[in-house]
Amino acid sequence: MREFGYRRADDVQGAVALLAADPGARLLGGGTNLVDLMKTGVERPALLIDVQDLPLDRIEVTADGALHIGATVTNSDLAADPEVRRRYPALAQAVLSGASGQLRNMATVGGNLLQRTRCGYFTDPAAPCNKRDPGSGCPAIGGEHHNHAILGASAHCVAVHPSDMAVALAAFDAVVTYETSDGPGELPLAEFYLPVGRTPHRETALPSGALITGLRLPPAPVAAVSRYRKVRERASFAFAIGSLAAALDVRDGTVQEVRLAFGAVASRPWRARAAERALIGGPASAEAFAAAADAELAAAEVLPHNGYKVALLRNLVVAVLTELTEEAAR
């Protein structure tokens, strides 16, 4: 590991100033991903700015009914929060499905958004990787890619985003708030993660030197009937090979509102808007759910070893929306 300096920031302005002063600086939240990547040499910061003492550890309901979640709230506190569990159960389920109890106690909301892909070529500094070393190539396309992207990828990178939390946030139109030395800003989650294109090393639209201060979840009554379903290669403590965050409002057998976001299929959480459009105003039936999934997955481009994800996501959509239809009827 490269040697590095360490500063603990007392307030947001101080953290942003430290970040602006050193291009080699990185923010340290729980460190569950960053420290691991520093050990292998994928990350080589010159300075760590520890954000654990920043006053960003609260979850609050605001007057307009939105939920504000601070950037240093831990995954554990997010998933245990009664308002999150009541208003956005799929978000609590998504967070609980990720990592282990130990890691959820350490990991923060801001760090979760910015965690890096677990593509084995990205995490191996000896391998070429366009995300880690732009222009060096992507061995995953002709190599080990059974858990790589089927949507939105490019000839330059087929890695998937590892976060479960961000999938539920995408379904619920979360907004990321941040602070820079030029002042505050915000980005809807739909614009937060950049398309892969030719620049897989550019992952988010955050301005350089920005510190994520938190998330805003707008009121979404539909989210009260929601679910996160994660498929993985073992029953617990593993990354998804496919996942779905879904919310559904059905009245008299007709879909009034629906939210669908896919995980582990793209470089970012994949909001399935084509599927949502196909469902609105139509019947809440297994046939309609399958047709909607097909509408979204028509854009899928599969590699030799990840084509199973198309059927997996289709089945997830049908199963989870069927369950939510039954739940709504109770």
Binding site: Y6, R8, G31, D36, L103, M106
Partner: peptide
């Protein structure tokens, strides 16, 4: 494992369990 995956290094920080292999001592 020294990578946060096995839990052998679990300790309690402020009463909450954490893996000490991914926790920097200075922090």
């Amino acid at each position: 494992c020294d990578q946060g995956q096995c839990g052998a290094c679990t300790v309690l920080l402020d009463g909450r369990r954490a893996v000490s292999c991914l926790q920097l001592a200075v922090a």
